[in-house]
Design a protein around this nucleic acid. Structure first.
Lengths: 362, 362
DNA sequence: CTGTTAGCGCATTCAT
DNA sequence: ATGAATGCGCTAACAG
């Protein structure tokens, strides 16, 4: 029944398999034991060989490595780290939507710094849904992530309390959250919005529309406040009819912008509070220009968030630029700082990244 | 020294801590044992309670859950799955660059399908580097991923052989790889490139430039072949001076395009073989238009890959569109199909996703 | 140099 | 309804 030759490792797979030692798809992954059996040594010798081969005779190492090749063995990191009581080498990144280039860049920034620390990122999208965020965070914690970077959806925050996180470090990015004691990396939303709006006012605009995302997240508040503050500074009253908030995607923003263009007294400029609203607004304006060919009447745009090819737009564009990737890097840096033994006890920090006003086309 | 009241769980942390039972950052995560001790039950009762509470008295459950709250306990999925011999619930996604919106969308498509199967994705960027790809794949396998989705960098493929993967299913996306027996999802590169080029020829263009990515990847070959084929069909000779291949990022593409514009006899149209080359080409054209204000002479663009706001470009744009997200979804579908017991043995498939020609602006 | 023992956190199996 | 023993894959610590 059992054969004892080298290639006859009994791993519970089909005993009549033609090349019994070669694993094929769908089987249980090879273990140290399998390798040991095939190489005719003890599991410890395999372990040592994989670990670098200290105190293992070269010829034995060769035998072991051959078996490793043959079985396609890869050390089970989860089991290993459990024994060695090393961290998981993972950080969880929960963002609203990976398809938004802004957050994709953000994730890349996190990955960059993580890779530098030899750590992988595990990503999930919340879709701005607090419940999915809760599940995602729970899942990450279950996988023993060493840290969490989160662009919070807002709403309930019980699952983000230190208590609930079991001490796993958390960094909030882009949006602050009341009642959550965590390092936070924000963009200078208020200052940026104020500067951008002021640029429009200086250019003579008085009917300025606002396209923004949901008010429930802190960026919504902060950017809107900056916008209003600038108007106030110039003594320009706020026209509620020109304010559209709550668009989460390009389509909704395009619809909102189109309705603004259809007003009897349309705005001469639009403040777009984020990437998605900017693209939607520009699509609406583009459609209108193509339909009616009236470029002169098209409103000027201020966009919070940069976007590719801004310089080629048919209307004046000013960008309130900030580097999403750098935001990701900075978030990761804060996280890794807190993951050191001494960093764990420091007071939580809130960092505000500067924005830069870029007149792209005027 | 040791206190025996409920909140005095001895978990090896600072015994003089004011609230000894509450874990703070940096400590070893709580385990079933910790919870058990705090709740005054056995680890098994905790395990059962977490698992749903079958055969546990409600009052005991309450005690356990309270302890869970207090300690911020999360079941260690790695340990659990090891015992239960369940997969890791992870698939590895290795792409060239997460910051490229094309691959970000792709990753989102994978995540979407994965989430539908209750599986997370773990992402890494290769930066088109085969060695980094090799490390990434090894790391993923070490983490016991149940499958791999890879946009291959090309070059050496030893690490992608079934042998080396230890039977873990692999799906190649976007690019084929000679000598690797794996499911592959491609875009109809040849057909799309041919159709796009033909559109330019039909419009009367005869001096058509080519901006492409590295020739070593299969998309490079296939798209270039489609381009050449269309020229041949129209009896238009290929002008080597108009062919620039190997640009990997926007900056390089912009430089290449600028040099084309500087030719004595510049092209009247440009075929851009991917997203990054399109953006770079358009930036170069935009800069030229702004400098010299000559829009009429600006070349028409055909772009393999769609991009946002194409309809607002100052030059005629035709897009060879294909859905990156759908490519991601399809790749994930193939992967999950193979992850089923019966799917493991099926012959590998190569799927080619159709392209759609969209005249965006003419 | 090599092998044996034991235990990381958890859940299955078997006792109580 | 609850607990004790056992082993998942791996390796530190201790034999030999």
């Amino acid at each position: 029944m059992s054969n004892s030759n080298a290639s006859g490792a009994d791993r519970g797979d089909d005993a009549s398999s033609p090349s019994a030692s070669t694993r094929t798809a769908g089987l249980r992954p090879a273990t140290v034991k399998d390798v040991a059996k095939l190489a005719g040594v003890s599991p410890m010798t395999v372990s040592r060989t994989i670990a670098g081969g200290q105190n293992v005779r070269p010829e034995i190492q060769a035998r072991v490595l051959e078996a490793v090749q043959e079985l396609g063995y890869h050390r089970n990191e989860n089991a290993r780290r459990m024994r060695v009581s090393k961290g998981s080498g993972l950080v969880g990144v929960a963002i609203t939507n990976l398809a938004n280039p802004y957050y994709a860049s953000f994730a890349l920034g996190v990955e960059e710094v993580a890779a530098h620390h030899g750590v992988r990122i595990i990503i999930g999208s919340t879709g701005e849904d607090t419940e999915r965020e809760r599940q995602l965070v729970a899942d990450f914690l279950g996988r023993q992530v060493e840290g969490l970077v989160l662009v919070p959806a807002g709403g309930d925050t019980k699952h983000l309390q230190v208590q609930a996180l079991g001490g796993t470090p958390l960094v909030l990015a882009s949006r602050a959250l009341d009642g959550v004691d965590a390092d936070t990396v924000l963009v200078d939303d208020g200052g940026g919005a104020h500067a951008g709006t002021t640029a429009l006012l200086k250019a003579g605009h008085r009917r300025i529309a606002y396209l923004g995302n949901v008010a429930s997240v802190s960026t919504g508040h902060r950017r809107y406040a900056g916008f209003c503050g600038a108007l106030q500074d110039y003594g320009v009253p706020l026209d509620r009819a020109l304010v559209k908030r709550g668009q989460q995607d390009v389509e909704a923003a395009q619809v909102a912008m189109t309705s603004l263009l259809d007003l009897e007294d349309p705005p001469t400029a639009v403040f777009c509070a984020n990437n998605r609203n900017t693209i939607g607004a520009l699509k609406a304006i583009g459609a209108r220009i193509r339909e009616r060919g009236v470029r002169e009447e098209a409103p000027a745009i201020v966009s919070f968030d940069d976007f590719e090819l801004a310089e080629l737009m048919p209307v004046p564009v000013t960008v309130i630029d900030h580097d999403a990737r750098e935001l990701g890097r900075e978030s990761a840096r804060l996280l890794f700082a807190r993951m050191t033994p001494d960093g764990a006890t420091a007071a939580t920090r809130e960092i505000e990244m500067p924005t830069r006003l870029i007149v792209v086309r005027s």
